[in-house]
Amino acid sequence: MSAVISQTELRRLVDGWIGQGVQVAGPRQVKPDHVLYALLNESGQLAMDGFVRPANSIKEFVYPRHEKLYGYRLNEKEIELTDVELPAKPQVVLAARPCDAAALPILDPLFNWDFQDDFYNRRRELTTVVTLACNNHDAHCFCTAVGLAPDAERGSDAMLFDLGDGSYEVRCLTDKGRKLFDGKTQSSDKVGQAKAAPKKTIDLEKIRSFINGDFESPYWQELTLRCLGCGSCAFTCPTCHCFDIVDEGNAAGGERVRNWDACQFCLFTKHASGHNPRTAQGQRQRQRVTHKFGIYPDKFGDILCTGCGNCTRNCPVSLGIFPVLDSIQKVETGAVEAA
């Protein structure tokens, strides 16, 4: 037996949550052919199908792109620091893709090793992730190549399966999920199933051996020559998490904020002396790939990539992680002649 909810009932539920003061986010068509995860004012804005995945990721609901860390004010000669109130509103992220949901447990250890980031942790606690198993994929999806799947449960509190008849099977995976859907579903004998998974493959061992090999390999430069260093890949990636801390205001008062940053920017590692360990775009691409497939798994246990394909989909020159990995595989198997 399964639990099922109709699309109409689901939308009614969403309006109910919003009415109770819950912040609800989900895919929303913001322009023709352009769907983003965004806050919803009412359930009508929720886009459930007709697209592969939103152009951004759900990370911004637990780790906003711009976040105030504290305020400061100068009174005469005395500086006064003011705390930021941590968010208190519960939040539901609805119809997230499994490749978005999986990113959150992957990021948890980073925000908690030794020093615990309360901003991240509070939002994480307040957030319930309701995933929609994927029924379509496009040429850029590769979740199955990094150990996930169109119905991977990691990071989800509940998962919906489109039954194709205007209703969804609801699988509650955690207490948070059960709390949302308890008593709201009908029992049924229909069972949902994710449709056709992406077929792309990566030999992760080959990637490992390449990134552990020659650090100065000319291939990094060659494979990534067309990279413009725009950072779209990092900003739309569910797992990229680098940030900058800056002051907004003047010496009299203002706030200290953190903003998303990206290792693809040329000033990212530039020292005050002018020395820059990564002066070329190829070196910055090497860092991105090495961090995701070597450094992060070694340190925190998981590959820092969920195979969503956003980096390529949003790349002005069609680069992104998969094309780079694919080229690396070819180099490693000798399909490409040595540079």
Partner: peptide
């Protein structure tokens, strides 16, 4: 002397 922002192993720099 690598460039740093957070100092606590988060900002990735």
């Amino acid at each position: 002397e690598n460039r740093m922002k957070c100092g606590v192993g988060k900002c990735g720099r």
